[in-house]
Amino acid sequence: MGYGLYLYGIFPAPGPKNLQLKGLDGQPVQNHLIGEFAFLYSEAKQERYLASRRNLLGHEKVLEEAMQQGYRMLLPLQFGLTVEDWESVNQQLTAPYGESLKILFNKLEGRREVGVKVFWENEAELQKMVEENEILKAKRDRLEGQRLGMDQVIEIGQEIERGLEGRKQEIIEVFQAELNPLAVEMVENDLLTEKMIYNAAYLIPWDLEQTFSERVEKLDRLFESRLLIRYNNFTAPYNFSQLN
């Protein structure tokens, strides 16, 4: 039993040819033209797709493999998008938003998205901050072993929070000073864990990726073991293909 069509992304026509990719549910990935747009799709075998790790990675893999085969001009669609038929795609997307899609293609031409996530160890950073701050260290030593009142607990907690936030901001500013000049656009995303202090996506020219990568490595050496940096140099440009 079929449940319509599962959509992965949009390319300028004529779009990818002979990709020979397997999509969700092991279905062959195909290309369908609507005017100036080529849709990458497969037959949907489920009414609704659970956002499981397997399904999410399957969706991403289709887009990334298409890009790796040279089809770089891509507007990725959000995971889980199914439609009944192509007429509904035309009515709901290409007809009303066709010009906006073309503007996005123009913005992405010759450019790629890369991502940088930065993590630190909260406890280690707190200890390091106290050791480096003579006033805070003296206050800690003075109060050690005493029964603290609520006001004292709140005051110390706020001072520590301000100190950590300041250290975090100093690190972020170093990353921004090094990486932002290479980007056409950048987006700061939500922090996903307590240890994550920076989560940014950059839109850069394709031929500047090596330079960008070298700067990330330079930052990694600068902060040595203090930070964990995760750099994704090849991903579909989700952060820069949003319809207004």
Rank of each mutant, 00 (worst) to 15 (best):
L126A: 14
Q127I: 07
K128W: 12
M129V: 07
M129Y: 10
E131Q: 11
N133G: 10
I135A: 15
L136A: 05
A138L: 13
A138Y: 06
K139C: 06
E144A: 15
E144Q: 12
Q146M: 13
R147H: 08
R147D: 12
L148E: 01
G149F: 10
G149R: 08
G149T: 09
M150Q: 15
D151Y: 10
Q152T: 10
Q152P: 01
Q152C: 10
V153M: 09
I156Q: 13
I160Y: 04
I160H: 04
E161R: 03
G163K: 04
G166N: 09
R167H: 12
K168A: 09
Q169G: 03
E170W: 11
E170G: 10
E170V: 14
I171W: 02
E173V: 00
E173C: 00
V174G: 02
F175G: 02
Q176K: 11
E178C: 06
L179C: 00
N180T: 13
N180Y: 10
P181E: 10
P181F: 08
P181Y: 06
P181M: 09
L182P: 00
A183N: 01
A183T: 02
M186A: 07
M186G: 01
V187G: 05
V187N: 06
N189C: 05
N189T: 00
D190A: 04
D190W: 00
E194G: 05
E194K: 09
K195F: 12
K195T: 11
K195L: 14
M196E: 13
N199V: 05
A200F: 01
Y202F: 15
I204H: 04
P205L: 14
W206S: 14
L208S: 14
L208T: 11
L208A: 14
L208M: 14
E209M: 07
Q210T: 14
S213F: 11
S213Y: 08
